[in-house]
């Protein structure tokens, strides 16, 4: 005897599923100013990723004004952090520092430890770029105190710490710090920060006189930077590979990487970087 299949419940379930899929939750009341701030912030991030730091700073500044006008505290924090990063990238270090100082001194915002760590690390990075190593170390130590190992900026803070150690001629400490950053960066994500770790590891190995061991991390950093399409860092990686090959005595390979670095630097229109490559290639 054949058992009859009852399709009714199946069809009913299908219809209910379709209706559920087509419908959606009732809309929240529309906050047009908030939408405008979010749109400006997204435009800023897009411009920053495309390498237009000055344009990005303009968008973040506009977003900040809108967020301040509606007292959107989360937005204000994000806008000031983003604005500082864009201003720093466009060469306005003073403006970037003012944004971060304003953020850290703005008590009503009551920043989370992660946000404090992020702001202090950004200030430390700027101090490092300016050659103010003592200030940079102090700020990075404060950032590390505020940031637990799971904090989103933990790996970047370790990398900045490694970079400070490298500048202080302490490659062993740099190797340890950048090596500690790598496991915090999930495979397949944070590609830029992974490349930063690998580049520092390569530079630390080179400084320790282990030029052959420096090649692998530098080549990995180059592959990641090429994947991200960052001309300045690609040229930087190629330059370091040229120096590393020169240190191993392989002048042919060294010239090959210097040539590639020069081509990338010139094509990206970065005259300062191109000059650095030419100086490195001088006999």
């Amino acid at each position: 005897m054949c058992r009859r299949v009852n399709f009714f419940p199946l069809l009913a379930a299908l219809l209910v599923g379709l209706m559920g899929a087509c419908g959606h939750a009732p809309e929240k009341p529309v906050n047009l100013r908030l939408s405008q701030a979010i749109e400006l912030e997204q435009k800023g991030q897009q411009a920053y990723r495309q390498g237009h730091a000055a344009a990005a700073a303009g968008h973040f500044e506009a977003a900040l004004r809108v967020d301040m006008s509606i007292e959107n505290h989360d937005g204000i924090v994000a806008d000031r952090l983003n604005l500082a990063q864009a201003l720093d990238a466009s060469g306005d270090v003073g403006g970037a520092r003012r944004q971060l100082d304003a953020l850290l001194s703005d008590s009503p915002l009551s920043l989370s430890p992660e946000q404090i760590a992020r702001a202090k690390a950004a200030l430390g990075l700027m101090a490092l770029k300016q050659g103010e190593l003592a200030d940079a170390q102090r700020l990075i130590d404060e950032a590390q105190q505020a940031c637990a190992k799971t904090c989103p900026s933990a790996a970047a803070i370790l990398n900045i710490n490694a970079r400070i150690a490298l500048e202080r001629n302490n490659p062993s400490a740099a190797l340890a710090s950048a090596g500690a950053a790598l496991p915090l960066l999930a495979e397949g994500s944070h590609l830029g920060e992974r490349a930063n770790s690998l580049r520092i590891i390569g530079l630390a190995r080179l400084a320790l006189g282990e030029a052959v061991a420096a090649l692998a991390p530098l080549l990995q950093a180059l592959a990641l930077d090429r994947e991200l399409g960052l001309p300045e860092r690609i040229a930087d990686d190629l330059l370091q590979l040229g120096r590393t090959h020169a240190a191993t005595g392989n002048t042919g390979n060294a010239e090959y990487f210097y040539r590639r670095a020069l081509t990338v630097a010139e094509a990206s229109g970065n005259a300062a970087l191109a000059q650095r490559v030419r100086e490195a290639n001088k006999p």
Binding site: Q45, L81, N82, L125, I160, G192, E193, R233, L239
Partner: peptide
């Protein structure tokens, strides 16, 4: 989804 919030900290320093 378009990214929102603070961008991740980038520790890059030119060599």
């Amino acid at each position: 989804p378009a990214p929102t919030g603070a961008m991740p900290l980038d520790s890059y320093v030119p060599s």
